[in-house]
Structures are given as C-alpha cells and as structure tokens.
Design a protein around this nucleic acid. Sequence first.
DNA 1: TTTAAAACCATATTATCCCATGTAAAATTG
DNA 2: CAATTTTACATGGGATAATATGGTTTTAAA
Lengths: 146, 146
Amino acid sequence: MIVMFMGEYHQKIDEKGRLTIPAKLRTELGDNFIVTRGLDGCLFIYRKETWEQIINNYQNLPNIKEARNFMRFFLSGATNLEFDKQGRINISSPLIKYAELKKETVIIGVGDRLEIWSNDKWNNFINENEEDFSKQADYLFSQNIN
Amino acid sequence: MIVMFMGEYHQKIDEKGRLTIPAKLRTELGDNFIVTRGLDGCLFIYRKETWEQIINNYQNLPNIKEARNFMRFFLSGATNLEFDKQGRINISSPLIKYAELKKETVIIGVGDRLEIWSNDKWNNFINENEEDFSKQADYLFSQNIN
DNA sequence: TTTAAAACCATATTATCCCATGTAAAATTG
DNA sequence: CAATTTTACATGGGATAATATGGTTTTAAA
C-alpha cells in the first residue's frame, strides 16, 4: 500500500451534489480516482491503481451467483471522477440516494480507500460500535507486545 | 522497544486545539508520529516505527464486517502530525471531542506510547482504580513474565 | 427553446505561520 | 551562597495565506 488514508473530516455537500475533498486527501488521491457504492451504506473512493487491483482480483473469482451479484453492485455504482477548480467532486444522484447524503457529510480515511458517510449514519455507527471496538482493541493490542 | 515513555505532565490546550508536548518527550518522539483514538477515552501517540508495527498486525485481518468496522474506527481516528515552531501539535476537533479535552490536559508516558487525557477524566481514572491497582499488580506479577 | 450540468468567479471561513509576552529553570557573577 | 542575568520553554494572539462554500454565467444537451 503506497498511500495510507487516515483521519476524519467534516464537509458540507451542496444542493448540486458538490463535495469538497480536503486538500490533504486530494494530494494523496491524485487526479484519477473512482467513486462507487460501498459496503455498510457509505461510498468508497479508490485511487485508480487500487481500483484496478481490486477488479483484477475479482476476475479470478469463480463464476458463481454471489460473485456475479457483488460485481453488479460494485461496478454499476462506479464512476470515474475529477476535481473541479476548487477541489470538489460531483456525486451523482443515485449515489447520493444510496448513501442518504444530506448536507453534513463525513469523509474518513480507511487505508487504501476513502469513505463518504452522511453525518447521521457515521454518528450512529460510532455510537453503536464503540464498546465492541474497545474489546477488540484490547485483544489486538495484547497481540503486538514483542 | 527503543524508547520507554514515562512520567506525567500537565499542559494546557488552547482554543485552537494546540497542545505543547514537553521538551523532554519531544526529543523522544522524533518528528514523525501518529495521534489516534485510544482506549478508555484518551488519545494515543505513537512513534512512526511503533505505528507501522501495529498496522502490520492488522493488515491480514479477513474482510468480514467486524474487521472492516474496526479498521474504520481505528484509521479514521488516526492522524499524522508534526510539531510547530513552538513544539505544539494540532489536535483535530473529532479527536478533541472524542477525548472530551478541555483546557487542562494530562500527558502521560506508557512504555511505547504517550497518552493524552482530559484532566478530569484522568483524576477520575486514578480515583476509581487506586484500590484495584494493588490487586491487579498482584495478579499480573504472579503470571511469571519472562 | 428549455433545462440541466459544468465551468467560472467571489466571498466567507478556517488554518497556519509568525511574533510577543509570561514564566520557570539554569547559569553566571559578586 | 545569594543575587542577578540569561536562556529555554510554555502560552497566547494577530496577520496572512489557503481552503471551503455559495452563487452566477456559460455551455451543452434534450
């Protein structure tokens, strides 16, 4: 992984569907990237290189129904986007609808991708899972004492 | 473990989210480090080397929902930071919110990491756990640690 | 000809950098 | 050893540049 996306950023999406990507993330993204329906009700943004790797990996999956359906979901939602002069992207209305994006939007870095969440969904996510996370973290942190 | 962080330091965070790291700790931290959501309501600061070790352990988690969620929580809370000319770091507002940081702040050294606590939380923590510490110590030291 | 989307422009907000002051520790000198 | 000076460090505030965001015009498409 060349780029490791991290952090949480709060941005406003306007009524034209335009969303500013924070400057720091822009430089890490480059100007060739893909937005698509993500898992768990958010959108994913991948660098082009990462996207191509993912697609390659799925080419090798057996031609079973589950794999076919997943590819439909993943590819039909995918769009090649660019920044406008002010560093914004234009999110299509099907994707806005899918992620239930309102004005208040959260962009997070998760390793090889960015995720776009509606503020409400993200808060729910954090609140519902916080306790589990500390348990998991207790476990995981106890693993790396060398 | 090359560096062993120790000690308790009381610093003030200003209304811009700037926090001075004591000079002694600065030299031990180097100028490449990561701040992230920690456990029990505080923030963790890791040297870059330590951080990379931790990440390596997580790379190989399977792509199941629990692992995905945990990575979201973990990476979205992480930021790569640097010192300003006066030796301060700039803590992002989601992290300030998470750790409920007010003006009075406590920085403690805990082995391979630093922890940032709000003064109130730290006092509560000490008060609530003081009696237990001796029991916990008895338990831990009886486990033969070699 | 109408509508919508994309490019452009302008302003408001935020973050970053730099400097000033206050305070405590250390060092130097009588 | 005490007193005074010097240095380092912590903390606050203001100016400037970068960024986010809203609105307007132009272009293209239906």
